[in-house]
Simulated assay, not measured.
Amino acid sequence: MSNWVKTILFLIGSAVLTHWIPSSFFRNLDTMVHEFGHAVATLALSGKVMYIELYRDHSGVTYSSMTKSWAVIPVSLAGYMTASLFAWFLFSAYAKGKQRLGLQVMTAVSALSLVLFVRNSFGVTFLLGFILMTVLALALAPKWLRDFYYLLLAFLCLEESVFGPGSLIVYAMQNSRSAGDASNLANYTGIPAIVWATLFTLFALWCAKQAVSAFLGRTKKARRTNRPAAMGSYRE
């Protein structure tokens, strides 16, 4: 079975499984990472981030101003690309047995977002709750529960990082002005929003493929490690 087929099956499977688990609260993690990517890109290009808002429906918005007009392009690209790369990072960390590092990075990004950017009430409440739960998982949870928590977050980020830009294609087909970052890029470059939405989706799928490959590699390695050693026979 090709890695692309495995990736698609994993995405479908994770979408089904995570919808069986009360996971709506945690889906805001991908939104937070997306908006954090916009904010970091803005600051890197000498812009100013006024604030970020996160909403209950898993959407978000970054309010910023930029002195360089061309900066609209990298800043608009940064959101979905950061979310896709972050999902890949989480699975790469898992493949190396560094789940604690992954949770620490999630906590650090959440804390920076809370202190520097997020100002609306739901966003602040989400970040405080998420930081508290993640710190408790790091400090008190047994390894099996911490690993379950980590994989839940990783699969949610993977799913959201692909289905998010995928939904932009639908929005761009219905109304090119309602496709979020793809619309911003279309307005500045003249390239249709559906083209940008498709590029976001292809990049997300490529990152998902790398993430699934890392996950399957870890699983195969663990299976080989747990396999009992063959008994040898010796003659005197």
Rank of each mutant, 00 (worst) to 15 (best):
W4M: 12
W4A: 12
L11K: 03
I12V: 09
G13A: 13
G13S: 08
G13T: 12
A15K: 07
V16Y: 05
L17I: 09
T18R: 10
W20V: 07
P22A: 15
P22C: 12
P22S: 14
D30P: 04
M32K: 06
M32N: 13
V33W: 00
V33F: 01
F36E: 03
G37H: 00
G37E: 02
A39H: 06
A41Q: 07
T42N: 09
K48D: 11
K48L: 09
V49I: 03
M50Q: 10
I52S: 04
I52H: 05
L54D: 01
R56I: 03
S59C: 00
V61N: 11
T62F: 06
S64K: 14
T67L: 13
W70L: 12
V72H: 07
I73N: 01
P74Y: 03
P74I: 02
V75Q: 11
S76F: 02
L77Y: 10
A78Y: 01
Y80M: 05
Y80H: 06
Y80D: 11
S84Q: 14
W88C: 13
W88D: 09
W88M: 14
F91N: 01
Y94E: 05
G97Y: 04
K98G: 03
L103N: 04
L114S: 02
V118E: 02
N120P: 05
S121G: 07
G123S: 08
T125Y: 14
L136K: 08
K143H: 10
F148E: 10
Y149G: 06
F155C: 07
C157K: 04
E159C: 04
F163G: 06
P165S: 09
P165A: 14
I169S: 04
A172S: 13
N175D: 15
N175Q: 10
S176A: 15
S178L: 15
S178V: 13
A179V: 02
D181W: 10
S183H: 12
A186V: 04
T189L: 10
G190H: 10
A197P: 07
L202H: 07
C207R: 15
Q210F: 08
Q210E: 14
V212E: 04
A214H: 09
L216F: 02
G217N: 08
T219W: 11
K221L: 04
A222Y: 08
T225Q: 15
N226S: 09
P228C: 02
Y234D: 09
Y234H: 12
E236L: 13
